[in-house]
Design a binder for these strands. Structure first.
Lengths: 205, 205
DNA sequence: GTCTATAGTTAGATAGAC
DNA sequence: GTCTATCTAACTATAGAC
């Protein structure tokens, strides 16, 4: 997106530890931005957690927004793993939603990130605004395609459009995740997501 | 919650303008906290928008957290108007959800507030954390009661528990509101909420 | 009731030594 | 590649004049 180059200088037998340090910083930033948000999360906190100075951090990332980009990219890999772009099997998409919820329930730190950043990014001036908007639109397109094919196989509950099913699925997962993050003992996120998907489809997810 | 007294000194014919100023400050704070969140929204911005100095503001509210309390209280009145506590008619609760979505769509500034603050309040150290957690629990209880009575009248779709219906309704509204706030042209929040409620109930909301 | 002035902290980012 | 030192700006909050 807009950081420095990824090529580590590896000359004359001296292995620069840049990649590892970078990864450590991104991991730390993911935790901090997830908990405090981007705006309130400070570079100092990230640097401390990564075991580096603030200036050391800014050697690897041009500025705070660049660090956020790296964090979002990193986290995106995880999401894509459950919702692959190429969907020969539309049922796999619906099952992927359950798997994603299960994954998020197991690693709550990562679940927090998008809940926090998405809400923050409502404002158009937020550095992640365009990215988040496009991410939601892409997710809606992907799921609407899957639900459309389910509908053709008469596996989507009659009376529900594929587009609505897609929007609802995303909304319900976001909303349930928020309720769960606020009160983990009082809400069974995975069970609710699964029951919901069983209600709007005729699948045994 | 924890601000100064609400009694305006009204002595010897001199009408202190405290109540009006206070209300102006709370209105300004609502906009600022909705847009920037509590942590990133500054008292300076609120004060500027309210046409008062920062110190002037802090005469009316002991500190920033006190101002947030006042904002949340204010906004709560609006919500309660659509979801009254005493529910003789369980259908009224479901219709109230549609009315609430309609209201939020018309006044997006206020819709932003809870989306932003709720996500921010995930952290236990956030001044609104306990309030938000209890608010969600109360909303779940209220809606579960309504759905339970609907189920007794066979107006809740079979296979859905009242508790799930309550959680889903809140989650879907929160999630749809987020999608809508991110892309108002691309999402019809009210239509989706209504269609969803028509799907999980047998009501013609 | 509202102001100016200011204390005390923290923020993001840069310069330059090593 | 990482540091110390530093700059500038913003923040919450208080003291005290009017």
């Amino acid at each position: 997106m807009s950081e420095r180059g990824d090529e580590e200088p590896r000359v004359r037998g001296s292995y620069a530890k840049s990649p590892a340090v970078r990864a450590g910083i991104v991991d730390a930033a993911l935790e901090v931005f997830a908990r405090d948000g981007y705006r309130s999360g400070s570079l100092r906190t990230v640097a401390d957690r990564a075991g580096i100075s603030e200036t050391g951090l800014l050697y690897h990332f041009a500025n705070k927004a660049g660090l956020l980009s790296a964090v979002l990219e990193r986290r995106e890999d995880v999401t894509a793993q459950f919702l692959p772009d190429s969907l020969d099997d539309p049922e796999a998409a619906v099952r992927g939603l359950v798997a994603l919820a299960t994954h998020n329930a197991a690693l709550p730190g990562r679940a927090e990130l998008f809940s926090t950043i998405s809400a923050e990014a409502i404002g158009a001036e937020h550095p992640a605004h365009d990215y988040i908007v496009e991410r939601y639109a892409a997710k809606r397109r992907l799921l609407a395609d899957a639900y459309r094919r389910l509908a053709e196989a008469e596996l989507l509950r009659p009376g529900i459009t594929p587009e609505s099913a897609a929007s609802w699925s995303i909304a319900l997962m976001d909303g349930m995740q928020l309720q769960w993050l606020l009160d983990r003992a009082g809400v069974d996120m995975v069970a609710e997501v699964r029951a919901f998907l069983r209600t709007i489809t005729l699948l045994d997810v």
